[in-house]
Amino acid sequence: MTKVLVLYYSSYGHTEQMAQAIAEGARSAGADVDIRRVPETAPREVAQNAGFKLDQSASVAVVDELPDYDAIIVGTGTRYGRISSQMAAFLDQTGGLWMRGALNGKVGAAFTSTATQHGGQETTLFSIITNLMHLGLTIVGLPYSFQGQMTLEEITGGSPYGATTIAGGDGSRMPSENELDGARHQGRLVAETAAKLSS
């Protein structure tokens, strides 16, 4: 059975919801899926004062477990058009895996959350994808087989480079059903691609 890791960082729960939808999609393709989050690096008092969602159910990831998976789907909210420092700190610890080629040939994908429609969705996805390509992963995006990203009927995330959501400037908007469907679609595609490559 194909093993998929959904690895994410979420300050306020938006990316966490997208991670759960990605996992649903991968499971619908028959994959064995684990959801893990990267460690919080902000001091606890700072995180609490900022209203971070600290009670997330996913267990904390360990770098050494990454080679156990056939596919790794990485998500984080944007920070000024790039990945969060928490995700960067975690990925910066993968040098040993890179040196050994431990992730070469695996499947990778990216998803993100931004405050606004043009607040770095695609640049953040590319920030993630750049890391994954250096680690030797083959990238799966969110192609236009997911027609939901073509809609003009509502404000929505979605990019050919990965599933996205828009949180709103005050963080009050949670992922829409269309955005969650995009995440499920991408999760399924990643699982299907990993299964084909490993057969």
Rank of each mutant, 00 (worst) to 15 (best):
M150P: 00
T138F: 11
A58C: 10
A115T: 10
P67W: 11
A102M: 04
V63R: 08
N131P: 00
M99F: 14
V74E: 03
N104Y: 13
Y69T: 05
Q48H: 07
E65R: 10
L91A: 07
Q93A: 14
L125P: 01
Y144N: 12
A89C: 02
M99E: 12
E154Q: 15
G101F: 13
Y80S: 06
V62F: 07
N49G: 06
R82M: 14
M150S: 15
V74Q: 02
L137F: 04
L54A: 10
A50V: 00
Q149V: 11
E45M: 09
Y144Q: 09
Y69I: 06
D55S: 11
M87W: 07
A109I: 00
N131S: 12
Y80P: 00
A71N: 03
L66N: 01
A47G: 04
G141F: 10
I72W: 02
L97C: 02
I83G: 00
A71G: 05
L103F: 09
E65N: 09
T78I: 08
A71E: 04
S57K: 15
Q93F: 08
G136D: 11
A102G: 10
G108N: 01
R82G: 09
L132D: 03
D92Y: 04
G136M: 11
W98M: 08
D55N: 15
L91R: 01
R44M: 10
G101K: 13
S127W: 02
E122Y: 10
V74N: 03
Q117I: 13
L66H: 04
T76E: 00
P67V: 10
T138C: 07
M150C: 10
V74A: 12
R100G: 08
Q121V: 14
S59P: 05
Q147K: 14
A109K: 00
